[in-house]
Amino acid sequence: MRYLFLSDLHLEAERPDITRAFLRCLDERAPACAAVYILGDFFEAWLGDDDPNPLGDQVAAALARLADTGVEIYFMHGNRDFLLGKGFCNKARATLLPDPSRVTLNGEPVLLMHGDSLCVDDVAYMKMRRWLRNPVSVAVLNALPLSTRHRIGRKLRSESQTRTRMKASDITDVNQQAVEAVMRRHGVRTLIHGHTHRPAVHELQIEGKAAQRIVLGDWDRQGWVLEVDQDGYRLESFELNGNGT
């Protein structure tokens, strides 16, 4: 079977080129797959399923059409869209996965994550993440008026951009010990994640055996997908305008 993985599209109305590329990906790549996995930061910001969002409706409808053909759709929260809930997933006919999730691909156990929980050297971010991902905090945020959520969302995005510019690149990347620990804990030799915007395939050793960490790319200057089938793992980039790979 073939599986398709992507993350960090950061869909927003201001980048229609990314939306068009994603919809083209659904038309051209996804129909041949058993499942599509979207590993977080699908949207640049998601402030609740009750927030009127024409782009969200458009994308959900496209995913639902794909699901109607028999392709399974899976979604995992990222740090930008952790308020996305059952409302969107029902529209998109998608299944919400916990982070991390252990799945089986062509007989091999594989660990899926968004990736931000591996950036343990960024102490300030990890503290904020623990608060934002707490179910009580999520419930409180969802109960706030939309105008308040929009104001908080703008503030968090601005602060995040400022902090990222000021931090050393190794602080905002994953911690190798954290990677190895989570892979050992879940008994896998392949980890797939996004978040860091550093697409690559990293070879490593887990308990003396060859292993790999595959990092999905962000959709900005180009699109990125990971295709998995019986022949292995292929991390590919392509032009957003569809004129090349």
Results as ranks from 00 to 15, higher is better:
residue 230 Q to W: 04
residue 232 G to V: 00
residue 232 G to I: 00
residue 210 A to C: 03
residue 236 E to S: 15
residue 227 E to C: 10
residue 226 L to V: 07
residue 231 D to Y: 14
residue 241 N to Q: 14
residue 236 E to Q: 15
residue 224 W to C: 11
residue 225 V to Q: 09
residue 221 R to G: 14
residue 229 D to W: 05
residue 219 W to P: 00
residue 240 L to D: 07
residue 229 D to C: 12
residue 232 G to Y: 03
residue 208 G to I: 07
residue 223 G to V: 12
residue 218 D to H: 12
residue 230 Q to P: 09
residue 220 D to L: 13
residue 212 Q to Y: 03
residue 225 V to C: 13
residue 233 Y to G: 00
residue 221 R to S: 08
residue 215 V to R: 02
residue 219 W to C: 02
residue 219 W to E: 04
residue 210 A to Q: 00
residue 226 L to T: 05
residue 218 D to P: 04
residue 237 S to D: 06
residue 209 K to D: 00
residue 230 Q to Y: 12
residue 231 D to K: 13
residue 233 Y to I: 00
residue 238 F to D: 01
residue 231 D to N: 15
residue 244 G to P: 07
residue 223 G to P: 01
residue 222 Q to N: 03
residue 216 L to G: 06
residue 240 L to F: 10
residue 223 G to N: 04
residue 220 D to H: 08
residue 212 Q to R: 10
residue 216 L to F: 02
residue 224 W to H: 12
residue 214 I to N: 01
residue 234 R to C: 14
residue 216 L to S: 08
residue 212 Q to P: 00
residue 229 D to S: 06
residue 218 D to A: 14
residue 211 A to F: 02
residue 210 A to K: 06
residue 228 V to N: 11
residue 209 K to T: 00
residue 243 N to F: 09
residue 216 L to P: 01
residue 241 N to G: 11
residue 216 L to Q: 05
residue 225 V to W: 07
residue 213 R to N: 09
residue 234 R to K: 15
residue 243 N to H: 14
residue 218 D to M: 01
residue 232 G to N: 05
residue 212 Q to G: 09
residue 221 R to C: 07
residue 223 G to D: 01
residue 215 V to G: 08
residue 217 G to T: 03
residue 226 L to G: 00
residue 244 G to T: 06
residue 211 A to L: 02
residue 223 G to R: 02
residue 225 V to M: 12
residue 209 K to Q: 11
residue 234 R to M: 12
residue 222 Q to A: 11
residue 217 G to V: 13
residue 240 L to S: 10
residue 218 D to V: 03
residue 215 V to I: 12
residue 242 G to I: 08
residue 232 G to P: 05
residue 244 G to W: 13
residue 239 E to Y: 14
residue 239 E to W: 15
residue 236 E to H: 15
residue 241 N to F: 10
residue 222 Q to L: 08
